[in-house]
Every structure is written in C-alpha cells, then in structure tokens.
C-alpha cells in the first residue's frame, strides 16, 4: 500500500509539472508531449519502456526529439505460490535516451515457509537501466524495412545475497545487455518487437546471477507481437527465453497474452495472462498480470 501512495504522489507531481511546463515558455527550451497514443509503449517488469516482460526500442515518455518525458509504473502479478511486484520511474530525453529505475519484489508468502525461508520471505532487487536509440524509426519508417533499434543495459542488485548463495547462485548482482528492434507495420495494424539479451540472471535476477550450472552470460531471445484494435487498444502476446543456471530449480521461459489500453495520453492500463512456468521448484506459475503506467 505504501508503495502505491508513493507512486501516486510521484505520478501527481510529474503530471502537474508536465501541465505547468506545457505551453508556458520556460528558460529551458524543452517541450513535453507530442508522441502518438501508445507509441511510448508500457513499462516492462525491469523498468524499461517496452512491452510487459521485455524492453522495446521505443523511448519512454511522450516527448519527441525536441523534449523530455517520463513515466512511473506499478505492476503486479499474482501467481499460485508467489506474488510479484515491480514499480519504478523512467525518463526519456529527446526520444533518444532513456534512464530507468525499477524495484522488483518477489514475495514467497506461505511458500517461503515450505522452502524453509520463513513465511513472507521476499526476494527484492533494484534495477538501473539505460537505453539508447541508435537507428530507424518504428512509426515513420513505413516505407522502409529498417526497424527502430535501441541498445540497453540493466544493472541489477539483489537484496538476498545469502539465500542466493545457499541455493547455488553465483552472485547477488549482475547486468543484462540487450538490443531491441521495434517496428510498426501500419498497413497490417501490427506491432512487432524482437529483443536479444545477454544475461546470466536467474528468474530475471530475483534468484541471483549465474549458478552451479553456469555463470556466463548467454544470448536469449524475446519477442512481442501486438495487433492494434484502435488508437487506444492493442492486444498481443510475448515470449521470453530464459537461461537455466540453477541446479536446484529448472527455469522455464516466460510468456503472456496482453491487452493494453491508453485511457489518455497520460495513463495506460495493461492486463495480461502471464505464465512464468516453474519457479524455485514450484510449477505452473501463471496468473493475472496487471500494470498501470502514468506519464507525460
């Protein structure tokens, strides 16, 4: 609850700052706003502008190449044996660069007791991200095959080093490097993103980085496909391959079916059915994924 209050306050502050920035000529020659609805994407669980579980090449915020923008998000995924939450903030500069922060919390609830960690034991990590758009234009390049391409990094610091070590994890902190290609196929009303990620994260880093089965970064693919039903509504599916470095618990790929709705230029709501497979020996972890993103 506390988080939601903090988030709502942050969102309010950002929106009122945006409102006062709009129109009024300021000392700084920055504009806010200007992107078409939904083209900033939502916020993926790691904090970057993207789909729900994978970064896209779009830059967060409503800004164009003449301005700055930002978003805050709260995402919750209720699984049979765990509860996953992610919340954070990101800024977009000139539709070119993005900086993001997200905190992820993985509450083991009663399952923690069964695992010998204690009821309500929570793995948590901070994720600092940066993304640079390097080529192409997802929206305007309709006459070209070239997608919009961005490269990014996410540095992750997990709180539970001792437990991670005990289950065979190699490290409590790590980084992912990724490249994303996003393209809108307007004639087909389709949006496609492909991301290649170098990672050694276990369950995205919630169970640490590397393990008894391997410590090296490996290349993993992630795909999102969306069909635009209207200016406000897009439905689609995502798939994210995962490495498998921990001997005690097999790690499955993640996938989801989603619907994202832009209430207006500031607010986007997403509901998805997400399947994370087996987590820490508990299988069939699938459930309702809800995400709210506010931005300017």
């Amino acid at each position: 609850m506390r988080k939601i209050v903090i988030l709502a306050t942050l969102a309010g502050a950002i929106l009122s700052a945006a409102a006062s920035a709009q129109g009024a000529p300021s000392r700084f020659d920055f504009e806010t706003g200007g992107k078409l609805l939904l083209t900033r994407g939502i916020t993926e669980v790691g904090g970057a502008g993207g789909g729900g579980i994978t970064p896209w090449a779009v830059i967060t915020g409503n800004e164009t190449d003449r301005g700055i923008g930002g978003t805050v998000h709260y995402t919750r995924l209720d699984l049979p044996d765990f509860t996953f939450q992610s919340y954070g903030a990101a800024i977009g500069l000139f539709d070119r660069v993005e900086f993001s922060y997200a905190r992820q919390e993985f509450d083991t609830g009663a399952t923690g007791g069964a695992l010998g960690l204690g009821n309500g034991f929570t793995f948590a990590q901070d994720i600092w991200g940066a993304k640079l758009r390097v080529a192409g234009d997802a929206v305007y390049g309709q006459d070209r095959w070239m997608p919009q391409i961005a490269v990014g990094v996410q540095y992750k610091q997990n709180d539970q080093g001792a437990v991670i070590g005990a289950v065979g994890g190699d490290s409590a902190s790590g980084y992912d490097l990724y490249a994303s290609a996003t393209k809108l196929y307007l004639s087909q009303s389709l949006l496609v993103n492909v991301t290649a990620r170098l990672t050694n994260a276990n369950q995205n880093g919630l169970l640490g980085f590397g393990g008894d089965l391997g410590t090296d970064h490996t290349l993993q693919g992630e795909v999102s496909v969306g069909y635009m039903i209207s200016r406000r509504l897009v439905v689609g599916a995502e798939y994210r391959f995962m490495p498998d470095n921990l001997g005690f618990a097999r790690q499955d790929d993640w996938y989801d079916l989603f619907a994202a709705y832009a209430v207006n230029e500031h607010l986007t709501l997403t509901a998805a059915w997400a399947d994370l497979g087996s987590i820490a020996t508990f299988g069939e972890q699938r459930g309702l994924f809800l995400s709210i993103q506010a931005g300017f």
Binding site: E31, G33, G34, K35, L36, T64, R66, G67
Partner: peptide, 10 residues
C-alpha cells in the same frame, strides 16, 4: 515539428 505532425494525424 514532430509533435505538430502527430497533432495533425490525430
């Protein structure tokens, strides 16, 4: 500007 282009598209 791009923002104005998008405004016209809207």
């Amino acid at each position: 500007t791009t923002a104005e282009f998008n405004a016209l598209v809207e």
